[in-house]
Design a protein around this nucleic acid. Structure first.
Lengths: 340, 340
DNA sequence: GAAATTTATCGAAACGTTTCGATTTGTTTT
DNA sequence: AAAACAAATCGAAACGTTTCGATAAATTTC
């Protein structure tokens, strides 16, 4: 392995001079710089980043931790963080928590390999977050709430989202609105449900019949919907904790011979890419993902720069009207139990 | 910042002993180990990963470079690489090339910050790849072909894919089959086109009228399709270089009052998530993305271990039949120019 | 043309680890 | 109880950089 020492020797200068030359300092004369660069090229010298970081005590990279590197959900968010990160002259790397909750994240957070982090991943323990956040490595946590020094929170206003979606259905005349939520470790899902309940309450509706949990996956939505439809009475609308579950819902409804939105109106949450292409196109609640991403990144840099920032930010959410809802039939659509 | 030195002092042992204790060596007695661990906890000691890597000369992480961290395309692929990487006890991080072709990728490859890399990104220059690949950092390049020491290639058999898709259309009776390809820097797209041409040639069809390029985006597909439809004669089928362009194609066709598959049959490429939900569901060519991911990762580890591996691998591809194709009408469907 | 000043180069220390070989301590063998 | 051995601890050197302060060389000033 060729080091800067070799380069220096080959160029016939001192190690320190070689270092100056390679990092483009103006302390070195043009002609020796040339000499060194030439030597570096000839030896195919590659700088060792660690040694550099070790001296410099900063890495100029920030880490994005996602629960699943691959989900369709994250696209916009990543784009947002990326743009801000780059424009600050930093690099962005991403990792996920698959395979042992804290593993990779642990390595990068705890071993001080990054200068900041953005975490959208319920699997990362609060303990790790609190231990790792410090001056020189602020952390922004998304879609959950973690208190601690150098820890900030960014989330969509899920309560509002849940509330608006439910109100929207109620304004169309629905009163029997089911909720199929996400896993219980998702604060986002809990908040959406809160909004949902709040809207119902305002109208004096006390629904306890139609509240189920799924797991944010298509299968989960499918099964929960089936369970729902097997009951004696059926809702005229279903509000899903996310779009993927709504997709599963579509499937289940079709199997029961019910059509959307004639028999049942549907609202999802997230506005993933597919939502627009379903038939009927899915009415859903769009989170400002891009904005959340840029916001998170900005916060990291502000905190890094020692600026005072609030601990917690909530971003507004928007209802996307498509074709999966319509007013309910006048006579409530009562099921008669299992039909298949 | 508290270092191992502080821990050692606090525990009343030598620095080296502290190091042994912290890394769980059995050279140290249980009771001093306890002592050291205790001290570390009290001081909230966090190990410095760089210093460690610098000594150890390995990072135990491999890098995945994607052109766009966010595309829906990558999900399965990432999952594949991730599984293999983790099961080898390594960590996987991802970065993209957005914002200055080589920046982040450059930093990690060139500065020896990883022990291996998997690259699916046409923006990364061959030069960088060849310079960075070395013993101790093998690189697998996907969907293109790069020659060099410690560089291996994995790709789907795009020629085969293009060929089969085209044959499929021909077997249904189509003879006027258009091609709307991806950007010219995509080797994959080129190969698909090759397969397409080969299939046509076998039947003695010499199409030059209906070959356009898009840019792998929905808009690109939309515009190219419009251009296609404005021509005097119209194809009875269109083969798109990827699914996203096919989606744009659906839109354009609808605007022209043409329906899929009655008026025009459509085949896409990639089988992204949406494909299944379009109406009609899109017939497309599925790349074995998961397999490509695991393959790539395995290759990295084999090369790392000094095993001999082939330089290049091609994986078979599969046609997914859905409802966007049917035999053409008997009288070829001749357009009369622009109709709207 | 010598003194003062600037510019270019150098040597050495530091960054925080790991790890080798040497030393000390504790245990067993005779 | 001394000799032989094993186990535990220690000191110091490395890893490849950056950077400070010191020296040497080149330039300016009087």
């Amino acid at each position: 392995m060729v080091t800067i020492k070799d380069v220096a020797k080959h160029a016939g200068v001192a190690l320190s001079t070689a270092s100056y030359a390679l990092s483009g300092s103006d302390k070195v004369s043009p002609k020796t710089r040339e000499l060194v660069l030439q030597a570096a090229k000839e030896l195919n010298y590659q700088k060792n980043g660690f040694a550099m970081d070790l001296k410099r005590k900063s890495t100029k990279t920030i880490l994005l931790i996602l629960s699943d590197l691959s989900g369709p959900y994250y696209s916009e968010l990543i784009r947002g963080t990326q743009e801000v990160t780059l424009s600050n002259g930093f690099d962005l790397i991403a990792c996920s928590s698959v395979g042992g909750a804290d593993s990779t994240a642990y390595k990068f957070l705890q071993e001080r390999r990054v200068d900041g982090a953005i975490v959208l991943d319920p699997n990362i323990s609060e303990h790790l977050l609190r231990e790792s956040a410090r001056e020189g490595c602020p952390i922004v946590v998304m879609d959950r709430y973690v208190e601690g020094d150098f820890i900030m929170n960014v989330a969509a206003d899920n309560v509002q989202g849940g509330y608006e979606a439910t109100r929207y259905l109620m304004e169309q005349g629905h009163r029997d609105i089911a909720w199929i939520g996400g896993p219980s470790n998702s604060l986002g899902s809990q908040h959406r449900k809160e909004g949902y309940l709040k809207a119902l309450q305002e109208e004096g509706i006390a629904n306890t019949k139609w509240m189920l949990v799924g797991n944010f996956t298509e299968e989960g939505g499918y099964h929960s919907t089936k369970v729902l439809l097997m009951q004696e009475e059926r809702p005229t609308a279903i509000f899903y904790g996310n779009d993927e579950m709504a997709i599963g819902g579509y499937k289940a409804l079709r199997e029961f011979g019910l059509s959307v939105p004639e028999d049942v109106s549907i609202v999802g949450f997230d506005d993933i890419q597919v939502a627009e292409y379903l038939s009927p196109p899915l009415t859903t609640v769009r989170q400002p993902k891009y904005e959340m991403g840029t916001m998170a990144a900005h916060l990291v840099f502000q905190a890094m720069g020692g600026e005072y920032v609030n601990k917690s930010y909530k971003l507004k959410i928007e209802l996307i009207e498509r074709l999966s809802c319509q007013p309910p039939r006048l006579a409530p659509n009562r099921g008669k139990g299992m039909e298949t």
